[in-house]
Amino acid sequence: MPPVKLLIIDDEEDYASALVERLNLRRFDAAAVYNAKDALAAVETHRPGVILLDLFMPGMEAKDMIKTLKDAIPDVEIIIVSGHADPALDIIKSAFDYIIKPIEINDLIEKVNMAVSKQKGAV
């Protein structure tokens, strides 16, 4: 089975690049971009199954970004990853799930696997 393709969209480069390495060691095919503009190009080239999206990035409205990403890949699942600890935010309803930084990698992988299962119609 091919590895699950993940795209991390987060302006914290040191965080995102380390997370990419950690996920790839765990047999995912992860890539990262650090701004909204590069995200749109990466979605086309990387064709991720799951996107880990930072909720607050400079120059990006998360609501608009989620719509754009969903337009580009309709069945992509989006997990919001943020330091903003308010799960009551409306925007979260438009994503598959929400996880608060700092994350425990096994918790993240569990959510990613659930997102993949949903894509396959198992959830």
């Binding site: 965080y15 380390a18 950690r22 607050f56 330091g83 903003h84 700092p102």
Partner: peptide, 24 residues
């Protein structure tokens, strides 16, 4: 607290990556 969570996330992933290099 939002900013601190971001700082902790960076430290967490980088320390985790160091640990992964040993584990893997």
């Amino acid at each position: 607290t939002h900013e601190q969570k971001n700082h902790l996330a960076i430290i967490n992933e980088q320390a985790g990556f160091l640990g992964d290099m040993i584990e893997f």
